[in-house]
């Protein structure tokens, strides 16, 4: 599988949990990539290991955009 295909799968997983109302509450970066902790009130934690560079860029962009939105309010 190409890096791009792997990225698309990772992006799909991130979007899946965010669409369900989960929030990224923690990002731990390590030698394998970035481990995302996603949480929804009254639900269990979900963990995602995002390995690809584009995948790590993708969730960073989502967080960055959110921050920009909050700051512009």
């Amino acid at each position: 599988m190409s890096d791009y295909q792997e990225y698309l799968l990772e992006r799909e997983k991130i979007d899946h949990w965010l669409d369900k109302g989960y929030m990224i509450t923690d990002v731990t970066e390590n030698l394998s990539g970035a481990e995302l902790t996603l949480k929804k009130p009254e639900n269990d934690l979900e963990k995602l290991l995002i390995k690809t560079a584009d995948g790590r860029k993708y969730f960073s962009n989502l967080l960055f955009q959110k921050k920009e939105e909050l700051e512009s309010r």
């Binding site: 965010l18 960073s60 967080l63």
Partner: peptide, 15 residues
């Protein structure tokens, strides 16, 4: 900077 904020705010920033 934004990853630092995520640690700080524990979810209040998330998309």
């Amino acid at each position: 900077a934004v990853l630092g904020l995520v640690q700080e705010k524990k979810g209040n920033l998330t998309p």
